[in-house]
Amino acid sequence: MDHPLIFPMLIQMGMSLMILLWLAYSRVSRISKQGIAEIRKTGFPVHVNNASDNFKNQFEVPVIFYVLSLLIIVTGAQTSVIITAAWVFVIGRIIHAFIQLTKNVIFPWRFGVFVITVLALIIMLISFTLQVI
Rank of each mutant, 00 (worst) to 15 (best):
Leu5Lys: 07
Met9Phe: 01
Ile11Ser: 00
Ile11Ala: 00
Ile11Met: 04
Met15Glu: 05
Met15Trp: 01
Ser16Gly: 11
Ser16Asn: 02
Ser16Tyr: 00
Met18Leu: 12
Met18Tyr: 06
Leu21Arg: 01
Leu23Asp: 03
Ala24Phe: 13
Ser26Met: 08
Arg27Pro: 03
Val28Leu: 12
Ser29Asn: 14
Arg30Lys: 09
Ala37Met: 11
Glu38Lys: 15
Arg40Ala: 14
Arg40Val: 09
Phe44Val: 12
Pro45Lys: 13
Val46Asp: 15
Val46Lys: 15
Val46Asn: 14
His47Pro: 12
Val48Thr: 15
Asn49Glu: 15
Ala51Pro: 08
Ala51Ser: 14
Ser52Glu: 15
Ser52Pro: 04
Asp53Glu: 14
Phe55Glu: 03
Asn57Val: 03
Gln58Gly: 09
Phe59Thr: 12
Pro62Asn: 11
Val63Gly: 08
Ile64Phe: 15
Ile64Lys: 07
Ile64Pro: 06
Ile64Glu: 05
Phe65Asn: 06
Tyr66Val: 07
Leu68Ile: 13
Leu70Cys: 13
Ile72Tyr: 05
Ile73Ala: 06
Ile73Trp: 02
Thr75Ala: 05
Thr75Cys: 02
Gly76Ser: 07
Gly76Ile: 01
Gln78Ala: 11
Val81Lys: 12
Val81Thr: 14
Val81Asp: 04
Val81Leu: 15
Ile82Ala: 06
Thr84Ile: 10
Val90Phe: 06
Arg93Glu: 01
His96Trp: 04
Ala97Glu: 01
Ala97Pro: 00
Ile99Gln: 02
Ile99Val: 10
Leu101Trp: 00
Leu101Lys: 05
Thr102Leu: 01
Ile106Arg: 05
Ile106Met: 07
Phe107Ile: 11
Pro108Trp: 05
Pro108Gly: 03
Pro108Ser: 04
Arg110Ile: 01
Arg110His: 00
Gly112Thr: 00
Val113Cys: 02
Phe114Lys: 02
Phe114Ile: 03
Phe114Trp: 10
Phe114His: 06
Val115Lys: 08
Val115Trp: 04
Val115Cys: 11
Thr117Gln: 10
Ile123Ser: 09
Leu125Tyr: 12
Leu125Val: 13
Ile126Tyr: 10
Ile126Gly: 03
Phe128Asp: 07
Leu130Tyr: 11
Gln131Asn: 09
Gln131Asp: 04
Val132His: 09
Val132Lys: 09
Ile133Trp: 11
Ile133Arg: 11
